[in-house]
Amino acid sequence: MASSDPPRDPHPPTTDERPTDQQILDYENSLRAELLADAPFVSELAGLEELEKEYEGGAEIFRKKLQELKKDYPIYRSIRKDGNCFYRAFGWRLAELLWSPSSASSFWHDTAKAVLISTRELLTSSGYEQVMIEDFYDTFLAAMKLREAPGEPTGLEVFQSEYASSTTICHLRLCTGAELKRSRDLYEGFAEMPIDEFVIKSVEPMALEADNLQISALVNAIPLVNIRIANLDTTPGSINFHEFSPMDADAKTLPVITLLFRPGHYDVLYGKNENVEK
């Protein structure tokens, strides 16, 4: 130790002057929370004109693509931009289809109930502890079955409440993780790391956005819908769609849910003739 060093407090306060990682994170989270404070998790229906307004001063290509999109999908519902939007949009649309009176006595509805009930088994067989997942599972199932019990809160009220919303997203994340682990040979080539690590790092934590791999896995974990994603980007030409269908189901017989993708974010789109939850 150099003797020219001035006497020091044995515990210099330097570490206290700088913000800690946690303080920085808290600050970022508080900023994000402020930005999000007014945005519902799932919004009321809106016409696509609302979306067009966002692009009024923007690139021509967006306005052209939105106009084209509006012909087939005149209505949308915005989803909170918090990194959970894909799972939230999926859960919401699935619930809406289940609640729809027109599906009530259909074969699809019966299959859907059985598939959703079996997600508990899907999770426990991939190593999730039942005692830790059952809160998520119970709330998820209750949200999907809402319409069977009169006098319950509306679907929108449920999906706009923090706990029910987070729980549903969490359950869908775990279904995605379980499917990735169950059919790991199928997915491993697309993950840049071993599947178990991918699930821990890129699926299970809340607020991490879903990419193609998670979307493919969720469609196979809950093989009840096709997902059609309209891609609003700057590629020249018409708006392009990405389709995801379950592998082991007759995709043609399944309903389609349509999402609008803008980099980092998904919202829900409704076709002209679709039944929608008001």
Partner: peptide, 21 residues
């Protein structure tokens, strides 16, 4: 922290390493 007991561990931070499981 030898003074406060505060811990630096990624899963305890309110970031993206913690998960509900």
């Amino acid at each position: 922290s030898s003074q406060t007991g505060a811990i630096c561990l990624d899963i305890l931070k309110d970031g993206v390493a913690w998960s509900p499981v």
